[in-house]
């Protein structure tokens, strides 16, 4: 074991160990990379379906989500101003508009569904957020999201408003989450910006 006493031995040892372990990690990372990407894609597709008036009960596995998505959803075209389309028998039932913007801690990404009348909200869902658990994180809960269903985009000004809990609601507003003012304000800001831009773009297309 005289080799062990040489002063280059620790360096060689470190080098070989690092090389071996890294090789395994890289191999595993490469094998799973496509899967990780697929997962992200499925999360998006699930959010799209959840924002639309589609009954997903019992069909929530990744492959079922993917099939449902492929059968019903069409990619954005010029006539939808960036929104995905939900079609049945070639007639358009609703639009799904991807939304994203800065949250309190990290970017929030989601989808909002709008019926064919371009006014009635069919639902909202989020597939990526890192807001404070129990506060801003509550945006993913159905208590918050269900409020959006059936609301109408205002024709002028703020398209959709997230109001303080103390303020009364009308047909184009929902209540914020108590204690999560920062998340609610920011969400309100980019949601309205995206919706107003879409509303105006759709008017122009008509």
């Amino acid at each position: 074991m005289s080799m062990r006493e040489k002063n280059w031995f620790p360096i060689l040892y470190m080098f070989i160990t690092t090389l071996l372990l890294s090789a395994v990690v890289i191999a595993f990372g490469t094998i799973t990379r496509q899967r990780v990407k697929d997962n992200e894609r499925i999360a998006f597709e699930r959010a799209v379906l959840e924002a639309l008036p589609i009954d997903l009960s019992g069909r929530t596995s990744p492959s079922e989500i993917h099939i449902t998505y492929r059968e019903n959803i069409t990619e954005p075209t010029k006539s939808t101003a960036g929104a995905l389309g939900y079609r049945k028998n070639d007639s358009l039932i609703a639009y799904a508009l991807p939304i994203d913007g800065p949250g309190f801690w990290a970017p929030i990404r989601g989808v909002i569904g709008i019926a064919a009348d371009k006014q009635t909200i069919t639902g909202i869902s989020f597939y990526d957020q890192n807001e404070t658990p129990g506060l801003g994180g509550e945006i993913v809960k159905s208590e918050f999201r269900d409020q959006f269903v059936g609301k109408r985009l205002a024709d002028e000004g703020t398209s959709l408003e997230i109001r303080m809990v103390s303020v009364e609601l009308d047909e184009s507003s929902v209540h914020a989450i108590t204690g999560a003012t920062q998340t609610s304000t920011r969400l309100n800001k980019f949601l309205d910006k995206r919706l107003s831009a879409w509303r105006d773009a759709m008017k122009e297309i008509e």
Partner: peptide
């Protein structure tokens, strides 16, 4: 402090 800063 949550209320003070209204952080969510």
């Amino acid at each position: 402090f949550t209320g003070v800063l209204s952080g969510g």
